[in-house]
Design a protein around this nucleic acid. Structure first.
Length: 853
DNA sequence: TTAGAAACTTAGAAGTAGGGCA
DNA sequence: TGCCCTACTTCTAAGTTTCTAA
């Protein structure tokens, strides 16, 4: 197989003849090899998913080329026509003992730079050396594409042998201060050894309907958590000031061990500060520490979620806000054509169903069946309504539409007044005071009743999510803080706890899955969340130093005689290379989705000599479809795992996530399957941003960032459904471009005539443009620029229509990579991070410009 | 050892606001 | 001015991981 990099295949040179640890290699199934490719363009205009309309496909760009073709060829499946977007990609995994020096990079990053001129970035050509590797979904190539020499989609960049004119260092343009610098708190990381000394005991010991609050969690050795009987008192959020700790970074204050946070200290409330303003400028010392240490050692890790350590000393908040009670509208639905009387409770649920009219759920029998089961219980046996088929909810639907319209038609002042009113009501619930620092609360609104909108083929979709009442809610608050007043008169909280080993402020049992909980947490911008975010990225960075050994270890075990070892090795390989999720077991009352450990035999097809075709529904019932060439031992192992099994049997029958994670922890402290996703995402961004060094204005640099971001999104299979108006928008843009091209033609004629001293002809509007040649030339240039911009926008829009960039930005990309790049490249950070991301990543803002993941 | 409870992160869709353009 | 589009925010479902108890 030949991947062209200035006429020479990187693969052929670097990898093909070598043995050793696995390295991805792109396979090259052509359109001919994959008859499904011919379906791509057809599919591109269809909704692939029954309920969400999600789809991934390449649509020819204005120049007739597939817009995703820069990623190389892709493979798709005709199944996509009825399911979630196909994730088509073809890769090759191969030995790479010789790649030692690069072993700390994800395989995705080891094959770099393709100088094929067909490879272009989003909207703008990207230097060939900076070409990304990934192309999993949304990377389709029509069968007409003839550039067989263009490599197949691969998540890995290609190393260019042809020189890297654009890969110059960025040193020359570094160190311009960021427009808005939010400074780090200089926290230290956890010493894991402390962990065992901390006493556990934090579960909400929820026994349904238990009203005996005192019976719950009576003893806690550390006395960090207690449960008390409800004592409703008015909220007094005014706290005593204690300046003693002012010089201590917030994060450190939070992490004070329980011993130091004794009873007396816990009763003493700290001064209230607003979290964002409490970030202090990092000292030179700490900056140096970041610079000098490749990663922060695990021994410095600070407490993370669920480890039983004290998360706070004082916690004050006002509880949660409930949705307003239902206001009956009195609009009568029809049954067999006749108006029906419903009581308010019945009407409320009927209205929930009526408003679903325009959604895909209405096409799902399960949704209707579940709704009917729950609604008929409310109607009672003797109600006139005996069958859903005879119900006509249109009058209620129409009424809802009218209400919506009325709301839309409100004047700006009215809208403003409503907004202010809402804010007034909610303000007090929006904040918590954690160790004296005012922090935003995340989801302080209790979920309103509704019909359950499970994703994919969820067996419970359409079921009634009952209204949550104060008696369903457990509050967690500081021992000495006033217990939030129950906002519904005459009612009371289910329970009040004082558990400082957890970060939730309240929880209730999920009405759909009563054994599960819905929690109220602090917002993403809070210090606590920031701390745990930072730990997550530090752990992923730590993996960089272990990855070489981990890869060597699993490669060795591909052929182990012990089946479990072999399964662990192959599963780890897939998690590492394909960024698969761990894949926990699921109950029958959940959607049938899988991850790595729960892959079924039918989800993986082995195609000789060494290709694996993956096809399954992953998280959120998003289809993962991928075709990869793997190392031969992996291929053989998969065939062995499949031997003698049915399609619906587990591929990894000896494996589950706990075994896998237990094994991973032996390889690196704290390592779990999901760390690989963070690691691969972040290192890919880091490497791409450091490759893509093309000069240009800020807009062009942002395109480079988006391009890298997109590659990560593809690695992680982050998809979104195509917006309903997408094709309309594309059509409109095409029309505009045609108009401009017409104008251009006219202008050129005018120019010719003007140069010859002839008067201009009438234009399309029947008017004459009487301009001097210079003016016409200027207009031509302007029009050309406009057309170029529009074409670029169109291409970007098409390219990203099924790729969700936000998820990786929020959850997987170490913000320090982005901040450092912005500093080096003089891109204002606000161009990359919006307001909420700036708040969330406040801890990362003072990173050194030389920071590398 | 295992099941399941608990706690937290990750995820896409829906809703909303505001800016640009005709 | 109103419409359209985009970016941002909110919502809540759906995962992973950790821990406990049997």
């Amino acid at each position: 197989m030949a991947v062209q990099t200035s006429g020479k295949s990187v693969y052929d040179d670097d990898f093909d003849e070598e043995d050793g640890p696995a390295v991805f290699k792109r396979s090259k199934p052509t359109a001919k090899q994959n008859p499904l490719n011919s379906e791509v363009n057809k599919l591109s205009s269809q909704r692939h998913d029954g309920q969400s309309g999600r789809q991934v496909s390449g649509i020819p760009s204005s120049n007739g080329q597939n817009l995703s073709s820069q990623k190389g060829k892709m493979v798709t499946s005709n199944k996509a026509s009825t399911e979630k977007s196909p994730v088509a990609n073809s890769r090759k995994l191969k030995n790479s003992d010789s790649e030692d020096s690069e072993d700390d990079k994800p395989l995705s990053a080891r094959l770099k730079g393709n100088s094929n001129p067909a490879h272009k970035g989003i909207g703008k050509p990207i230097p060939t050396t900076s070409l990304p590797m990934v192309s999993k979904n949304a990377v389709k190539k029509s069968s007409e594409d003839s550039d067989d020499e263009v490599p197949l989609s691969s998540r890995f960049p290609f190393k260019s042998n042809a020189g890297t004119p654009n890969s110059k260092s960025y040193e020359s343009e570094e160190k311009k201060p960021l427009a808005s610098k939010i400074l780090q708190n200089g926290s230290t990381l956890r010493d894991k050894q402390h962990k065992s000394s901390i006493i556990m005991g934090k579960r909400p010991l929820d026994k349904a309907n238990s009203s005996d609050q005192s019976s719950v969690k009576k003893t806690k050795l550390s006395d960090t958590s207690t449960t008390v009987k409800i004592k409703q008192v008015p909220v007094k959020a005014e706290l005593k000031t204690d300046d003693d700790d002012d010089h201590i970074p917030i994060a450190q204050r939070i992490k004070k061990p329980a011993a130091s946070g004794n009873k007396s200290s816990s009763t003493k409330q700290k001064p209230v500060k607003v979290a964002s303003s409490s970030f202090k400028k990092t000292t030179q010392k700490s900056k140096k520490a970041v610079k000098n240490s490749k990663y922060i050692k695990s021994t410095k890790m600070s407490p993370s979620a669920g480890d039983g350590q004290k998360k706070w000393t004082t916690l004050v908040h006002n509880g949660v806000i409930f949705p307003p009670p239902y206001k009956p509208h009195g609009v009568k639905m029809r049954y067999s054509g006749k108006p029906v009387d419903l009581n308010p409770e019945q009407e409320e649920v009927a209205t929930m169903f009526a408003v679903m009219k325009d959604t895909d759920y209405m096409q799902k029998d399960k949704f209707k069946e579940n709704f009917w089961d729950d609604w008929r219980k409310l109607l009672g046996k003797n109600h006139v309504v005996q069958s859903l088929e005879k119900c006509d909810f249109t009058p209620i639907y129409d009424w809802c539409q009218q209400e919506k319209e009325k709301k839309k038609q409100m004047s700006t002042e009215e809208k403003k007044a409503v907004k202010e009113e809402k804010l007034n009501q909610e303000e007090k619930y929006m904040w918590a005071i954690v160790d004296g620092v005012k922090e935003k609360v995340g989801n302080f609104r209790v979920e309103p009743p509704g019909l359950f909108r499970g994703r994919g083929e969820h067996p419970k979709m359409g079921k009634l999510k009952k209204r949550i009442r104060p008696r369903d809610i457990t509050i967690n608050i500081g021992k000495d803080a006033p217990i939030p007043e129950c906002p519904i008169p005459g009612e009371r909280w289910k329970e009040v706890r004082h558990d400082n080993t957890v970060t939730w402020l309240a929880f209730w049992n999920d009405p759909i899955n009563p054994k599960e909980f819905k929690y109220v947490f602090l917002a993403a911008s809070s210090t606590l969340k920031g701390q745990s975010d930072k730990e997550k990225y530090e752990k992923a960075r730590m993996l960089k130093d272990y990855i070489e050994n981990i890869r060597a270890a699993y490669t060795k075990n591909f052929t182990s005689k012990d089946v479990m070892k072999r399964q662990i090795a192959v599963a780890t390989y897939l998690i590492d290379k394909l960024a698969l999720r761990a894949g926990n077991e699921k109950d029958d009352d959940e959607a049938d989705t899988v991850g790595c450990c729960t892959l079924k035999v039918e989800n993986v097809k082995a195609v000789a000599p060494n290709t694996l075709e993956f096809n399954f529904l992953g998280k959120d019932s998003i289809r993962y479809e991928n075709k990869v060439e793997v190392e031969l031992p992996v291929y053989k192992a998969i065939i062995q795992f499949q031997a003698g099994k049915k399609g619906s049997d587990d591929l990894f029958d000896q494996l589950d996530t706990s075994k896998l994670n237990a094994h991973l922890k032996e390889l690196m402290p704290g390592l779990t399957a999901k760390v690989f996703r963070t690691y691969n995402a972040s290192i890919t961004l880091d490497e791409m941003l450091n490759m893509e060094t093309k000069d240009g204005d800020v807009a062009e640099k942002i395109v480079v960032y988006q391009h890298a971001n997109k590659e990560v999104a593809i690695i992680c299979n982050h998809q979104r459904s195509v917006s309903k108006s997408h094709s309309q928008q594309m059509l409109r843009l095409n029309e505009k471009i045609s108009e401009l091209q017409g104008l251009l033609k006219e202008l050129k004629t005018d120019l010719d005539r003007a140069k010859k001293g002839k008067p201009p002809l009438k234009n399309a509007d029947g008017k004459r443009r009487n301009l001097a040649p210079e003016a016409i030339e200027k207009k031509i240039a302007q029009t050309n620029t406009k057309i170029e911009k529009m074409e670029r926008d169109m291409k970007t829009k098409e390219d990203l229509k099924t790729v969700a960039l936000g998820t990786s930005k929020i959850n997987y990309l170490d913000p320090r990579i982005t901040v450092a790049w912005c500093k080096r490249r003089e891109v204002p950070i606000e161009k990359i991070f919006n307001k909420s991301l700036l708040a969330k990543f406040a801890w990362a803002m003072d990173v050194d410009p030389d920071f590398r993941f």
